[in-house]
Design a protein around this nucleic acid. Structure first.
Lengths: 107, 107
DNA sequence: ATATATAATCGTAATATTGCAATATCAAAT
DNA sequence: ATTTGATATTGCAATATTACGATTATATAT
């Protein structure tokens, strides 16, 4: 097969997995960290910073964006990617609630 | 290509991505949750519970295990999978430190 | 209007992941 | 020693992901 059997799981479990997928590639973690560190949201140099080609970075940005983690703004000539802190916080809470729930019982 | 270019990222970023990968499939999240809920660590019925074949579950368990999240114990005839709470806690802290660090700045 | 800079999309190749049937392994009980 | 029950491994097919070159779209400046 190759495709995940999403139907058999609850929306909650699928959601957790979807969010985790965003962080499941080091380039995406690096991109998020880099964006957050840029005080003035300079953007196009993510490519130089990370060391992957422009199309590849663009692809990773799309994945991050589809999860709702980006806010694009215009600042002069170039697009400014920013982190959607509200969503980011939501994701942190989703993980923490899963971690906390799971941390009990067993052995 | 198809393979991630791991060399270009720091160990820390690769580690975060590796941990995230464990949670990046709903079956694995389901398995972790199910194991944690079983007070007496009954095990072999994960297969019945989740609805995937035994080899597939075994494969997912391996992924979880390689990350260090399982503690296998023997209890009567069947192996008892338990969550390695220490590692689990470590992972939670890794995520939280990343989330907290990233939550500042930008737009 | 044209040139320039920046980012997105397309097409494609390489690799990874997911899933299962068949088989093998291993431990406990008989 | 053999059977039995439970888990791991192997082999394979289908799909997804990662990466990049070439191209296209978009916006700003000239």
């Amino acid at each position: 097969m190759g495709a995940s059997k999403l139907q058999i799981h609850s929306k909650r479990l699928n959601d957790i997995a979807l969010v985790a997928k965003v962080f499941a590639h080091p380039a995406r973690v690096a991109i998020l960290e880099y964006i957050s560190k840029q005080k003035d949201c300079i953007c196009s140099d993510i490519v130089d910073e990370i060391g992957l080609s422009q199309p590849t970075i663009s692809q990773h940005l799309q994945v991050i964006n589809k999860a709702g983690l980006l806010k694009g703004n215009f600042k002069g000539k170039s697009i400014c990617y920013c982190i959607n802190i509200k969503k980011f916080q939501e994701f942190q809470e989703l993980f923490n609630s899963f971690f906390n729930k799971t941390k009990f019982n067993c052995c």
